[in-house]
């Protein structure tokens, strides 16, 4: 097992290197640079600016410099936000995004598993149908619509919760719920479907026939076997949600890192593009690794890393 984990860690590093290299190539191939502006700058000024950020050097050299700094844990300085290091930007914003994301994920996972289980047990009855309608609404109304509606009703009209901002717990409620909407719908629907799958299996019927109380059947037998698809999706979903949502953070004026993923690209802020991408990718790769480990734990028959079948 340890050997497997060691091997996987090495592969993770290679994957990460591949992602950062590809991103470096991608960002240098799209039109525009950090200094493209509506009022074209004089040549001399542009040259000065490029020299200052090392962008005057040939690309391969810039790449080597970047990679060298990266190995030493230095993500460089933002070009747009002068004098702010990318390390600081991520370190300041990540706890915010992570708190928000964690609240949303907890809500989505627990409520989703519960609702999905209920829907499966009550298949084709009223509660199943209403949960489906609820999930569909969650899917078809994107959070850029939900969020302003929340602000308008809970914040402005009923004055129950703050409209925007960050700092107190009450300011996290609306964004967490807005962020949880889609994952909640996804978890509910998936859980329902795989529960149905498992409920039809012989061993469940046996367990039921044996007279085991339904709760026991559900928690000990069914849930464990039905949860694999949910786990599969929760991995990358967690990585995505914990590293911040551009839309929700923007609407609720939350100082998280979600905006860096979009704005760094809009601004062609190269160091931030790289930093944000590497950060997210590392998270994602790690989550997918944990998901694989979880498979083996949930169903010991699943063996990864062994010889091909």
């Amino acid at each position: 097992m340890l050997r497997y984990i060691g091997k996987r860690l090495l592969i993770m590093l290679i994957t990460l290197w591949l992602i950062s290299t590809l991103t470096f190539i991608l960002m240098n191939s799209i039109p525009g640079d950090p200094f493209t502006s509506e009022k074209k700058l004089p040549e001399s000024t542009l040259e000065n600016l490029k020299a200052q950020y090392g962008l005057d050097k040939p690309l391969p050299m810039q790449y080597v410099v970047y990679m060298n700094n990266l190995i030493h844990g230095d993500l460089g300085f933002s070009i747009k936000n002068v004098n702010r290091s990318v390390n600081d930007m991520l370190a300041d914003g990540f706890p915010v995004s992570a708190q928000l994301g964690a609240q949303a994920m907890i809500l989505a996972i627990f409520a989703g598993i519960l609702m999905g289980t209920v829907a499966a047990l009550r298949q084709n009855r009223m509660s199943d149908y209403s949960l489906m309608v609820l999930a569909v609404i969650g899917l078809s109304i994107p959070n850029f619509v939900i969020a302003p509606l929340f602000q308008k009703y809970f914040g402005l009209n009923w004055e129950l919760l703050p409209i925007a901002g960050w700092g107190n717990f009450d300011q996290t409620i609306l964004p967490s719920i807005a962020l949880a909407f889609t994952p909640l719908a996804l978890v509910t629907r998936l859980m329902r479907s795989s529960m149905l799958e498992v409920l039809g299996q012989d061993y469940i019927r046996t367990a039921r026939a044996k007279g085991l109380p339904p709760i026991r059947v559900i928690s000990f037998h069914t849930l464990r076997n039905a949860i694999i698809p949910v786990i599969t999706l929760i991995g990358p979903l967690t990585a995505a949600i914990l590293t911040g949502s551009f839309v929700v953070e923007k609407i609720f004026s939350i100082p998280g890192i979600g905006k860096y993923f979009v704005e760094s690209i809009i601004n062609r802020d190269y160091p931030v593009i790289m930093g944000a991408t590497i950060f997210f990718s590392a998270f994602l790769i790690l989550m997918n690794f944990l998901v694989d480990l979880a498979y083996g734990y949930i169903d010991p028959r699943i063996k990864l890393g062994k010889k091909e079948a």
């Binding site: 994957t15 992602i19 991608l26 799209i30 990358p236 993923f261 690209i265 990718s281």
Partner: peptide, 17 residues
């Protein structure tokens, strides 16, 4: 791992390109 790589790349960048 190929899936991871594709997932990790910034989508916005890919689309602009």
């Amino acid at each position: 791992r190929i899936v991871d790589v594709l997932w990790g790349l910034p989508y916005l960048l890919v689309v602009i390109l």
